[in-house]
């Protein structure tokens, strides 16, 4: 399958003396669901901002659909990549449908209004994300989970090949976390979207994503299938914590265990981990 994103020898740092991303290279095939995981400050959101053109790389290349990212105008890039950022609340009181409609901005000129085609796309996005029932309500009245669905609806209505999400399930309860990942998987499978999601939840990432980019705080990184990258050794090395691991079925499951946890006396990060062969 054709690579829709190609990153080669990417280097970036906010200060010269302190590079965050060092020589990062990876490719993403069209229609795949990729997780970006790693500790705080490792550069996950920075990478997302580089991929959507918000930040300019220092060295290396980023190609979107075989073209250098620099060759895209802001408008053209917004027609290619939609971004769902960590939750934000607008200053003014936009309703759900008004918020989702702003997704068509990259397609409107001066004095622009949504065409019939635009309206159909907006209606489809609301339908697909199950947000039609609160379309006229103000965004601020919705729960965190509902609001996140609205932002995903907006990203869908932007009608792009690529969807970037920055911690889409932070602040959500378990039910809504699973709901958001189910929705994203549906977008991938039914609409062929390429999805890159920054996440702290490696278990959900293992269950839903095809590949994972695990970035370390020291600038190191691992890229491969979830099976290849998510091992207790790798997680211990990247996050500096012990984990229980177990095989749920197709994927491994990881439970972080701290020094003062009830089960902290169990030798967690060992191959003979008592839970490692136990099916939960």
């Amino acid at each position: 399958m054709k690579n829709i994103i190609e990153v080669k020898n990417l280097n970036f740092g906010y200060a010269k003396a302190n590079p965050i991303l060092k020589d990062v290279s990876f490719e993403v095939a069209a229609g795949k669901f990729i997780a970006v995981a790693g500790p705080n400050g490792a550069g996950k959101t920075t990478l997302l901002n580089l991929l959507c053109g918000l930040l300019r790389k220092k060295t290396g290349t980023i190609k979107i659909d075989s073209e250098n990212i620099e060759s895209y105008s802001v408008k053209k890039l917004a027609q290619k990549i939609a971004v769902v950022r960590q939750e934000f609340v607008p200053v003014f009181d936009f309703s759900v449908i008004e918020m989702v409609s702003t997704a068509r901005t990259p397609y409107l000129g001066a004095f622009g209004f949504e065409s019939k085609g635009d309206k159909k796309i907006i209606a489809d996005a609301l339908e697909a994300t199950d947000t039609v029932r609160f379309a006229t309500r103000a965004l601020i009245e919705l729960s965190g989970g509902e609001r996140q669905r609205v932002f995903i609806a907006r990203a869908l209505a932007q009608n792009t090949d690529i969807l970037l999400l920055d911690e889409p399930t932070s602040f959500l309860d378990l039910k809504h976390q699973v709901g958001i990942y189910d929705l994203l998987k549906k977008m991938q499978l039914e609409k062929g979207k390429t999805i890159i999601a920054v996440t702290h939840d490696i278990n959900l990432a293992a269950q839903y994503c095809d590949k994972v980019l695990l970035v370390g705080a020291d600038g190191s990184y691992q890229y491969g299938t979830t099976k290849e990258v998510f091992s207790w050794q790798q997680i211990k090395k990247t996050f500096g914590i012990n984990v229980f691991t177990s095989n749920v079925g197709k994927e491994n499951f990881f439970l972080p265990i701290g020094k003062f946890a009830k089960d902290s006396n169990i030798k967690t990060a060992e191959p003979h981990n008592p839970l490692s062969s136990t099916k939960l």
């Binding site: 802001v74 917004a78 990549i81 950022r85 901005t105 932007q158």
Partner: peptide, 8 residues
């Protein structure tokens, strides 16, 4: 950031 992401 949001505005740039929406092509402005």
């Amino acid at each position: 950031d949001e505005a740039k992401g929406l092509g402005v």
